[in-house]
Amino acid sequence: MSEILLALGWIANPVNWVGVAGIPNRVGEHLSYSSVTVLIAAVIAMPLGVVLGHTRRGKFWVVPVAGALRALPTLGLVTLLALLLGIGIVPPLIALIVLAIPPVLAGAYSGIESVDRHTVDAARSLGMTEWQVLTRVELPLGLPLVIGGVRSAALQVIATWTIAAILPVGGLGRYIFDGLPVQNYAEMLAGSMLVIVLALVADGVFALVQKGVIPRGVVARQSASSSDGGTRRRLHAD
């Protein structure tokens, strides 16, 4: 337990709050890397998942494939791409986008697909176009699960950028990989605690967003529902 005190002391030390290796800069790096990764993955995977969910195609492959991709060790993918594509931020960025796509895709797909068929058919029978069915019925109802996919991707990305610090990139993982060879356990533990706090805060923010986007009419009927993140847990790796 005394290690925790040493780590807290490390965090409290003003020396560790300035410069490139300072905590504010590392947190900023970690957050910006992670946001860019999730954003790109979402731009690629979300429309695809929504379209597949709307057309109800991909029932037999989207979620199983997303699950199977968990078998790929993230550390292996990150190191392999670094060797193949050279140094810099781009190779790990690509590796992490690849890893973030399956959860976003599966979440978007399940979200749209989970909308009751009868509701969708009722919307069609009212004369809505396919676009209206998608944007006014399926997306609002499926949004919590769609965001759940982004949530699980974001957690995975935050975790994997820590691991990606095995390469010469910034972020909070730096503290772990810089402390490791010199056995500075206080620094490693401090970095770990910061990443854990960051991940939990991100998770909490996404949880609030997920709650917030549930349509008012649904909230009343949904007291004992499991749509608050069932998919997320099953899709999340790391």
Binding site: I158, A159, T162, I176, L200, D203, R233, D238
Partner: peptide, 17 residues
């Protein structure tokens, strides 16, 4: 859910403590 949100490498570093 909270436990599962903890990133793996930091958790691995913290477990010995």
């Amino acid at each position: 859910g909270l436990l599962y949100a903890i990133p793996s490498l930091p958790f691995l570093v913290a477990v010995p403590t």
